[in-house]
């Protein structure tokens, strides 16, 4: 699009700094420590799962583990516990990877199930998300240190998908539990720079929406979901 007033503005800054512009190629930022990479890096997969569970539950997040074979039944239970549909699902190949296609069909027989589909446009998708009692996403990572899931928005799973429904469930393979945000960001950074990820929005979500704005009293569900569930699939 457009860039306005840039040259005058940046030249003024360079004057104030008393150095010429375009120095960065010779002076890129050099990390001074590998602490971000080494923190919690020595944990085994089992330890990472335990850390993730402890830290998620403190937030609080409902933390569930399941084998792939029981994933569908587990999701059905979680949906029922939260009052059923309308359920908003993403349009994604993940259902096939998790062998959930049969579950998708059976769910639709008992609940209202809708799909986020970019081709239906902004208004229609926002309406589905606003009306949804619950949405289920497939996360890219679970961060053990902070009990955070990470998701990237795209055509089949927009931004508001994660924020407008009343309840939110995120499914993540145990193999995608990483020590902390460092590893997840490194992956996103690589994917974006390699042109493999065209997403315009990456979200790190650590439990339900909350606020301490009234007398520092912590309340949940101010804007986003009222509660959040992480489902870790242990055998993938």
């Amino acid at each position: 699009m457009t860039i306005i007033n840039r040259e005058k503005f940046l030249n003024h800054l360079a004057d104030r700094l008393d150095q010429p512009r375009h120095q960065l190629a010779q002076h890129p930022y050099q990390p001074i420590s590998d602490l971000p990479q080494t923190t919690l890096a020595d944990q085994t997969p089992a330890e990472l799962l335990a850390t993730a569970k402890t830290h998620s539950e403190k937030i609080p997040v409902t933390f569930v583990t399941t084998a792939k074979a029981q994933l569908g039944a587990q999701l059905t239970t979680l949906i029922q516990e939260r009052g059923g549909g309308p359920v908003l699902l993403p349009t994604t190949k993940a259902f096939e990877q998790f062998q959930l296609t049969a579950w998708q069909q059976s769910l639709a027989e008992t609940q209202q199930v809708d799909y986020w589909q970019a081709e239906n446009g902004r208004a229609a998708n926002l309406k589905l998300a606003e009306n949804a009692n619950l949405s289920i996403s497939f996360a890219d990572f679970l961060l053990a240190e902070s009990g955070t899931i990470t998701v990237s928005s795209g055509a089949g799973q927009g931004r508001a998908f994660h924020f407008l429904p009343q309840h939110y469930i995120s499914v993540v393979p145990q193999s995608r539990i990483v020590p902390r945000s460092t590893q997840a960001i490194a992956w996103y950074d690589d994917e974006i720079k390699a042109g493999r990820l065209g997403s315009s929005a990456i979200h790190f979500i650590t439990g339900p929406s909350n606020s301490g704005d009234i007398e520092m009293h912590l309340v949940t569900g101010v804007h986003g979901p009222l509660d959040v569930v992480y489902v870790v699939v242990t055998d993938c």
Binding site: A155, S200, F204
Partner: peptide, 21 residues
């Protein structure tokens, strides 16, 4: 005193194939 803020987001203008943003 949180480990991470609840919502940490990196976002720009909506991509062509996306519905919102």
């Amino acid at each position: 005193g949180q480990r991470l803020t609840t919502y940490v987001t990196f976002a720009g203008p909506k991509a062509q194939d996306e519905a919102d943003g």
